[in-house]
């Protein structure tokens, strides 16, 4: 106590600041950093959750590189990203842009768009899963059948299944992106638009020269945010394909689902950890790109 009393005010402040900061730091170290480090160690070991861990060097990574399923899954993961991010970006911008101009029932409409974001992904995935079934229970196929169009295999197809699963995932994320876009739109000063109006510029030019450039930080944020979301997609895929996780023929399996299966169905913790490290690196690269983009502003 004597020691504390002799400190200057500034030093006391520092002590208190570190005292408070220590709580989240300790939390992060125990909950985040320790398991992360442990996962990296396990990726060089073999462990089935029961016995001892044994060192295997780079074996898990060699298996990974040689595993055709891994590369397929890697491709799927980027397929989710490359389809999901642009589609959700364009759709949410178009909706936000027009919703911003609507005055009638504005709050209600906005709430409707936001609703899917608040819905449990599991419930949503199961409802869509049933939408996609064939006759007699599938909504879409029943509609097709009633107008005499042949059935479409949505989920039981190596080409249709991934977009079919992506659709509700995009829909679920729209509400959030719309809200962010609208906030971004509101933040653009009116005076630019007034100046453009006085100059008699077309609305197309206003969009390209004023709105979009000034929305850049918003767009960067949404792109990064949704990219990470699509790279980590799991619940929609898992719930829509529970009987054949990531199927058919691994055509919808994302990396996170493969990690989950390797770890908790095959109990091959080392291999699962190696996959996790790869996912970590991918997310790291995406995040670094984000920082780069933000700095270039």
């Amino acid at each position: 106590m004597q020691f504390y009393r002799n400190l200057t005010i500034t030093q006391k402040r520092t002590v208190w600041a570190w005292g408070f900061l220590a709580v989240p730091i300790l939390f992060y170290v125990i909950i985040r950093f320790y398991p992360t480090g442990n996962a990296m160690i396990i990726s060089f070991q073999e462990w089935n959750l029961l016995g001892d861990r044994t060192w295997t060097g780079f074996d898990n990574y060699v298996t990974l590189v040689r595993d055709p399923v891994f590369w397929q899954v890697f491709g799927n993961t980027f397929m989710y990203l490359l389809l999901g991010t642009p589609i959700s970006l364009v759709v949410s911008f178009v909706i936000a842009y027009h919703l911003d101009k609507v005055r009638f029932a504005h709050g209600f409409l906005r709430a409707l768009y936001f609703l899917p974001f608040m819905t449990s992904a599991v419930a949503m995935a199961w409802v869509w899963r049933w939408f996609y079934q064939g006759v007699p229970i599938g909504l879409f196929n029943n509609a097709l059948a009633s107008v005499g169009i042949a059935q479409i295999e949505f989920l039981n197809s190596t080409t249709n299944a991934l977009p079919a699963i992506l659709a509700p995932a995009v829909w679920a994320g729209l509400g959030f992106q719309i809200i962010i876009f609208m906030a971004g739109l509101r933040a653009i000063p009116r005076s630019y638009y007034e100046a453009a109006q006085i100059d008699g510029v077309s609305s197309w030019t206003v969009l390209w020269e004023i709105t979009l450039p000034l929305l850049r930080p918003t767009i960067v944020f949404i792109v990064v945010f949704s990219s990470i979301g699509f790279l980590r997609i799991f619940d929609h895929v898992f719930n829509m394909t529970t009987n054949n996780p990531g199927g058919p023929l691994n055509s919808t399996k994302p990396l996170v689902l493969m990690i989950y299966e390797t770890a908790f169905a095959s109990f091959d913790m080392g291999y699962a950890a190696a996959q996790t490290v790869v996912l970590f690196l991918v997310l790291l690269v995406v995040s670094l790109l984000q920082l780069r983009l933000l700095r270039d502003r």
Binding site: N244, G247, P248, L249, N250, E261, A265, S266, F267
Partner: peptide, 15 residues
Amino acid sequence: DESAQRQIVMDMVAR
């Protein structure tokens, strides 16, 4: 590994 062995049979029919 039951689930992996089941997956192999499932994929066999799916192919």
